[in-house]
Design a protein around this nucleic acid. Sequence first.
DNA 1: GTAAATTGCGGTAACGTAACCGTAATTATA
DNA 2: TATAATTACGGTTACGTTACCGCAATTTAC
Lengths: 352, 352
Amino acid sequence: MSKSLENKEFGVKEIARLANVSIATVDRVLHNRKGVSEATKKRINDIIREFDYKPNIIASRLASKRTSTFAVLIPSSTETGFWEAPLSGIDRAAKSLKQYGITVRKFFFDLNDKSSFLKQVAEIMQLQIDGILVAPSFIEEAIQLTAICSERKIPYVFINSDVPGQNNVCYIGPHLFCSGYQAGQLMDFAVKSGKILVVNVSKELDQYHHLLRKEEGFRAYFEKNNRKLEILKIDITKTDASSIALALDEVLTKERGIEGVFVTNSRVSSVAHYFEQKGIDKVLIGYDFLKENIKYLELGLIQFLICQKPEEQGYRGVMTLHRYADLNERNIEDQFMPIDIVTKENYRFYHN
Amino acid sequence: MSKSLENKEFGVKEIARLANVSIATVDRVLHNRKGVSEATKKRINDIIREFDYKPNIIASRLASKRTSTFAVLIPSSTETGFWEAPLSGIDRAAKSLKQYGITVRKFFFDLNDKSSFLKQVAEIMQLQIDGILVAPSFIEEAIQLTAICSERKIPYVFINSDVPGQNNVCYIGPHLFCSGYQAGQLMDFAVKSGKILVVNVSKELDQYHHLLRKEEGFRAYFEKNNRKLEILKIDITKTDASSIALALDEVLTKERGIEGVFVTNSRVSSVAHYFEQKGIDKVLIGYDFLKENIKYLELGLIQFLICQKPEEQGYRGVMTLHRYADLNERNIEDQFMPIDIVTKENYRFYHN
DNA sequence: GTAAATTGCGGTAACGTAACCGTAATTATA
DNA sequence: TATAATTACGGTTACGTTACCGCAATTTAC
């Protein structure tokens, strides 16, 4: 409500006055366009540094009418619906950046089809783009993308899964190993004796190594803490209910005394469904705040869900591109999501 | 990097043209200042509605040089250091709003001295303020504040603890009952038999009823789930180590078979310290992501900490004032913080 | 019936930055 | 040496909104 009165703000005009040049020249220096002699450039830069000039980004945006456009490349909504949350975070960020003239264009690929990824990349490259937020689900293909981006000097941020050493702005997503480790501790709390079963459910080989990292973390917990429980595992490479039932039937009849089950991804609801059908009561731990999972959490068939803020991943992803491309921030750090423990009692308050 | 070319943006100029008036008149209508006949006002408003005019807030802020100032009124850093986190969130928000000409002024009161609260209120009221973020630790005094604010039409947001029915913009903080309920579930997981002890540590009567709400939630869990554990409780009204040791000594010698201890606030580290000294090993659950607490979490003396994003409370508090006062949002909902479960295995990733 | 107040509105200068256009002065080219 | 190209800079408009100043026309007061 109040006006800033005293504010003889220090701006280009003042710099120009002090340097005995026009504001046009100051502007040229600020955007290091050419047409300024080294001498005046130095003079101006000295003043800028001395007075720690910070441009008024409001006026800047108004004058330039500059609009950034970012591309987002993520899987289209999958069976599990996992990507709905990041998408909604992306939309939230897009909405709040819209008023500053920033546009977000969304592109989707099919998780079952690597070529669809490259097709979308080609599509994106047609456009004038100031940055890309990408889920590098396919490693080879993701590396191809980074090559193109590097050539065109387009910054890119990885979301949800990482491909190390790719000169990306940063990574935003879970720390897989540690989340598995956390699952180990929870399992240890809930199961006092008996065997434990690790279940990996995944059709895609590319996804499989993510699951493995979680399993490694899970096992590491028991090792580090000298818990000598027997840990079994099965890989289920089909995701339909009957395939899962079959696989579980087999292992549960063969192996007696399994008290806890750890599903390394959001497919935990399938296992819960199976338990419900068969009236089995075991400690069940899995991943992700999905409707189906919450249903079984509520029913008491799932004890813990580990969630990693998928919505926020999307939001942060876009915002990070903004910080890098529009606000010129550099040295942006990787952003590991918290390892949230969601239970029957706190899920209502969970911010995805 | 690209410019918005086609954008013949629909603005006041266009409205003026369509309504056959000057932009000055449009501006008068937009800010419903007087000096416009009912007829033209209607004409302009119709156009505004028809074309769904949205003002360019960039230009608006540039032209108006309007700067908001918000006051923050929270406890000065306490023994436990709890308020450092909200404060850092407040600073983070202040920093990112600064470039838009928004100032945040911080005021602190002493949690042991109600009069210091009112003194700071008087201080604030000297200033031109566009909103207040306040921790209503003292109920009576907080109500006095709201009365003054209502009179002066200053909006206010409550943080960390609520005083219902005060016409505040919204409340931002934990849902105490539910967080206690969650603690109940965790305790139930970790303790299979034996008695449970609830410990309330607090000097201030005003704070005590917050603790009670958590205790109620805690007990409610066991009741709802038909767990017939015996739940004992003690109130400790002094916070020094020896007072706490004395009280715990007494109850632990009198009552045998206590397996779990629930401390209803961040004083849990004091209990952990006592356990460490005496070599006692029990399940210990408490509150808040504080250095001391994390230390004992790391050492395995505390099993679970329930945390409610104090940093984010501060951040959201300021941002909410901004949304209300600057962006003119209305009907802002209460923002209950998630009930985060922090363990030895995930605290490194916790975003406070 | 004249003076004073009020109403309704238009013109326009800011706000701080961006960037186009023009033009001297200098340098390169023929 | 005349002409073209380049360099180095200034002047100025534009971005969309705000808000001040001012002026007719109308209404009210005396």
